[in-house]
């Protein structure tokens, strides 16, 4: 079995495996912040990242938890990253665009995260991951579309993969992530990933 762990986030409800945390107060950003606070991470940079990146950082953090996370002791050279999303960077796009339209100001800090793959960059910086990775855009979380990408990462020598769906715009923020042992991977395991996506 190649699935080492799962997490999910749905508008304030954060699940790590079978345990659950509920943040019901406030807007999408406030709820994400409370879920993050529950993880007690010492990483102020989280709050400065764009929303998509925060969703990805939150979702992946339990996998690297020093007390029991399935990827806590792995070689970061061989950890790959796959991100699926429909909205991609739309939340950041809209924020950057609004300031540009309303005030004629192009904010460099808002511009850079107008790329969905910035979330992979944030994740790689947080955990020192130098591996391969891709961001795939699709209307809904379809695990089958991951097969060629997982194969590509394995071909490039990735031994573990952090992989998931993250989608956010306006009040909506959802994610479903898995940690994969790429050496134990079998294409049948894609059904387990789809089942995890479907639970959301």
């Amino acid at each position: 079995m190649s699935i080492l762990g799962t997490t999910s986030y749905r508008d304030g409800t954060f699940r790590i495996g079978d345990s659950r945390f509920d943040a019901t107060a406030g807007d999408a950003d406030a709820r994400l912040a409370s879920a993050w606070a529950a993880l007690a991470q010492d990483y102020p940079r989280f709050h400065r990242a764009d929303r998509l990146s925060r969703l990805v950082l939150l979702s992946a953090a339990p996998f690297f938890d020093p007390s029991g996370g399935p990827l806590r002791e792995v070689d970061p050279e061989h950890v790959g990253m796959l991100l699926l999303s429909c909205t991609g960077s739309m939340e950041s796009d809209a924020r950057y665009c609004k300031l540009l339209r309303d005030e004629g100001v192009a904010s460099p800090a808002l511009f850079v995260p107008t790329l969905p793959s910035i979330a992979l960059g944030e994740l790689s910086i947080r955990h020192g991951l130098h591996g391969s990775g891709l961001c795939l855009l699709m209307p809904a979380p379809e695990a089958a579309a991951l097969l060629p990408a997982i194969g590509m990462l394995r071909q490039q020598g990735m031994k573990w993969i952090v992989c998931g769906w993250a989608d956010t715009f306006a009040d909506h923020a959802r994610a479903a992530f898995v940690a994969i042992d790429a050496e134990a991977w079998s294409d049948h395991d894609i059904n387990r990933i789809q089942a995890h996506f479907d639970e959301q």
């Binding site: 970061p76 990253m81 460099p108 850079v112 995260p113 910035i118 992979l120 960059g121 944030e122 790689s124 910086i125 955990h127 020192g128 991951l129 130098h130 591996g131 391969s132 990775g133 891709l134 490039q156």
Partner: peptide, 17 residues
């Protein structure tokens, strides 16, 4: 092959990692 700097969001790694 694809690889990540794990260094900075907008600036490339100074050492080309």
């Amino acid at each position: 092959a694809i690889a990540h700097d794990a260094n900075h969001i907008s600036g490339p790694s100074r050492t080309g990692e």
